[in-house]
Amino acid sequence: MNDTPQDSLPSPTAKRQLDPALDSGLEPLEARTDAVKKRRDMPANLWMQCDGCSKLLYKPRVEEKLNVCPECNYHFEISSAKRIQMILDPASFEERFTNLSPLDPLGFRALKAYKDRLVETQHRTGLKDACVVGTGKIERIPVVFGVSDSRFLRGSMGSVVGEKIFRGVELARDLKYPFIFVSGSGGGARMDEGILSLMQMAKTSAALADLDRHGGLFISVLTNPTMGGALASFAALGDVVIAEPKALIGFAGPNVIRETIKADIPAGFQTSEFLLEHGFLDRIVNREDLRSTIASFLRMFVFRPA
């Protein structure tokens, strides 16, 4: 379930030193992201290539469109800070639970130690872990809002992410606010925290069961990519589940499925559109309409004590 955390791969050099012939049937994810990075950093940082349609795009124009491709409507991944800015009323967000930081309970060490990766990622992103939770307002309606950040170890869920979601849901229950979470965590459960990560799935789901019992509203927003342990727990449990277009959403990673069935997977498999067609999404919503759509749900589904 945890087959796409690029961050947990060794550095390209380390891999090459290990054995250049080792690349099995699995896709060299890191090589692929490197290529993507290179493509994105084109002349003078003004041009980028779309991951969806491969067209050359003028960066300022993409940014103006909330990081959506003006040609094919591909939705690029964005940071938690940008997401908050896009969805919440200006300056309404107050982050909570900032005193929680990850530990390394397993002493997890492969080619690189988890501890070191945590410190490096914290320095690079300015985040303590892969999600941000707090209170804020959407069109003046108070909410508890959370969002995962894919820059932090692929937005994967370890103990801190689980705890923040758990406390966020409890806060929503106690304040009688709706709970909104925007998922975009590639790897799902964080392998480096082992079984403790897996248990966060049950923990966050239990919190949501309790919120549900109290008559609370949970709106789950799925963005590219929402896989594995995130989707198989809190992200799938919204009273309303919506997704951005063309996001990769599923349980098992495409590579694992390909390996298992020894065949190619159908085009469009595990996309938002695929999930809508099979009945698992309430709606696909373009990024530019996300704020107003969520606000309309908030007005429709008002807290009603059970």
Binding site: M1, D210, A235, I257, H278
Partner: peptide
């Protein structure tokens, strides 16, 4: 849980999530 096309089409992640939520209560 089985990683396959049919399993994804029928919402493997969604039903596991539902079990986690329902078993909790």
């Amino acid at each position: 849980a089985y990683p396959g096309v049919g399993a994804e089409e029928r919402g493997q992640a969604f039903i596991i999530a539902k079990n986690l939520m329902e078993m909790a209560r």
